[in-house]
Amino acid sequence: MSWFTQLLTSSLGKKLVMSLTGLFLILFLPVHLIGNLQLMADDGGESFNLYAKFMTGNPLIKTVSYLLYGFILLHAIQGMLIWKANRGAGGGSSRYQGGKSPTAWSSRQMAGLGMVILVFILLHMWQFWFQMKWGDIGTATYGGVETKDLYTIVQHTFKQWWFVLFYVISMIVIGFHLQHGFQSAFQTLGLNHKKYTPAIKTLGLIYSIIIPLAFAIIPCYILLIK
């Protein structure tokens, strides 16, 4: 086994993969959010649709996006493998369960939270990403440039209360996932220092509240106000 595979397949290496892919996904979230905020613009969908076209057309962004899909899959599969291995290491399921655990709920539920998020992502990709790529959707033209009219589809979807509810729940789940994942990624990388770790933890907490909240506001706004 080469040193590299040894590194990545050891217990610490597996976690390293989780940490690095996780950090990439954390970085991706604000980028995605900036795009979504275009939905709030009162311009009949022009900025959003142009943004969507840009995102699907630019070769650099396309490369990064395939990297992103890969990382999502890697993060999910590796997470499931770790979950399976860890479940097996616990010494049977006959533990007394009544005790009060000293750990954070989110830390213990990362695998479950992750599964919910994965389902959300798959649905999300089917509804928007797949439609944008291969779906039979209408077009819109802005200043002579023709684009697929994803905006209308989004508007339509976000007018269904049950979907908005699922979306909001998923954002709460992401919040909890981030609450553990953010600081955990730094711990796994060993980026730890008496002076800076408290700041990282605070930042992680703020991040895990602000970002999902911002995401969740958009469909609520569309459903209730627009």
Partner: peptide
């Protein structure tokens, strides 16, 4: 030491910090 720890069949750390608390 990490290699031996893995061979012994301990699980992977997922930073729950239960160890530190207990």
């Amino acid at each position: 030491m990490v290699n031996q720890m893995d061979l012994e069949g301990f699980g992977n750390c997922s930073n729950t910090y239960a160890c530190e608390a207990e």
